[in-house]
Simulated scan of single mutants.
Amino acid sequence: MAVEVKELLEAGVHFGHLTRKWDPNMAPYVYMERNGIHIINLYKTAAKIDEAGAALSKIANSGRKILFVATKKQAKDIVAEKAGSINMPYITERWPGGMLTNFVTIRKAVKKMASIDRMKKDGTFMTLSKKERLQVDRLRAKLEKNLGSISDMTRLPGALFVVDIKREHIAIKEAQKLNIPIFAMVDTNSDPRQVDYVIPANDDASKSIDKILTHVTASIANGLAERKAEKDATASATEAPKAKAEAPKVKTEATPAKTEAAPVKAVAAEEEE
């Protein structure tokens, strides 16, 4: 899906922060100043969306997960909806410290959530006292709120997509330690050097966030579709030789006819004698 500057403009992607709050490292992405506010160069934004989209599509095609991180009010629901639609994990509540650097512990918490669910299914939960059931329910609700969206993430993500890198600085640092590629919407008040794939954009307006994520998730969906098509093609290619090998062999009757001729001649010879 090609990115048009006009649609970015209509979504307010070009509005940056006050000039006194800017980060000088964002200078290459600033078009001009208007009424004390920096205006982002949308031509560069469109090019960066295409660049990030191509990279994210490749990661999705390889089978790795892309973790979306956005805990600010304007982005929570949008990220949950967009990431959920392509079956990607996301964090929209408080970032759990050590989510990446201490992933083993996080997985244990997720397994704890799964074990509680099993208790409820097999009836063990009802054998607990009323007080214990209440405590378990509270623990389950807390885990669901913080980790529910990453319950299917069995290994470290192939990439991180962040909305507002200043707010999610802990997530950024953890990803940097583990050399996980970072994709992010970066506003004029942030340092783009912390990110591998910068998308200069207004990260405060819900319309802007929605527009960027629509393009990003579309690229990921394309990568997933290509992966599925490749798997289907490989499966059909391996099934064809099997079907050929399993085909029944047709026996010919010519060989038995020849073998019957010998006994007939022998009988005739005996009669002549």
Rank of each mutant, 00 (worst) to 15 (best):
G223R: 00
E144V: 01
N102S: 14
P241K: 01
G36N: 11
S129Y: 01
A269P: 00
L8P: 01
I116Y: 13
T234I: 10
Q194I: 11
G12E: 05
F15G: 02
D232G: 05
E230A: 13
A109I: 04
T154G: 10
G148P: 03
M26A: 07
V3A: 11
I106N: 10
K249A: 15
A70V: 04
M32F: 02
A55V: 12
R20I: 09
R64P: 00
L213V: 01
R94V: 07
Q74T: 10
A262S: 04
E132F: 02
I59P: 09
R107G: 00
D187P: 09
L139I: 12
G148D: 11
K82D: 04
E93K: 07
D196M: 08
P263F: 01
L18Q: 00
R227A: 15
A2C: 03
E144G: 13
A245M: 09
S57E: 15
K44V: 01
A70C: 05
L134G: 05
L143W: 03
V195W: 03
T217V: 10
K65N: 12
L139A: 12
T238C: 04
L143K: 05
A229K: 15
E4V: 00
L139P: 03
P89S: 10
W95M: 12
V264T: 08
H215A: 12
K48G: 00
A114Q: 08
S151T: 11
L213P: 02
P192H: 03
K21Y: 06
H17Q: 12
M113C: 04
Y29Q: 07
M32A: 15
G123V: 12
T19Y: 05
L139R: 14
A257F: 06
K65E: 15
K58F: 03
P24G: 09
N25K: 14
K145N: 03
W95V: 10
I172G: 07
A237M: 08
I170N: 01
A268R: 13
M153K: 14
G98H: 11
V5Q: 11
L67G: 08
P181M: 13
A60V: 02
A240L: 14
R94N: 06
T234F: 11
E81M: 11
E93Q: 12
F161G: 02
A240Y: 06
K231V: 01
T188Y: 01
D117W: 08
K249S: 15
A247W: 01
K142S: 08
A218R: 10
H38V: 04
D203V: 00
I78S: 02
K251Q: 14
L156Y: 07
E10Q: 15
E33I: 08
M88F: 02
G84E: 12
R20N: 02
S208Q: 14
F68Q: 10
P28I: 13
I91K: 06
R138V: 04
A184G: 09
N202T: 06
D152P: 05
K228A: 15
L156G: 09
V186H: 05
K173E: 14
D191W: 00
A52V: 10
E270R: 13
H14D: 15
K166W: 03
V30L: 14
M26L: 11
M126K: 05
R138M: 13
M153W: 05
R193F: 09
K21P: 00
A218F: 01
A235W: 01
I209M: 08
K111T: 11
W95T: 09
I220P: 04
H169W: 03
A83L: 07
K6C: 03
N189Q: 05
V186I: 11
D196I: 07
K166S: 13
K65H: 06
D117S: 15
F103E: 10
N102A: 13
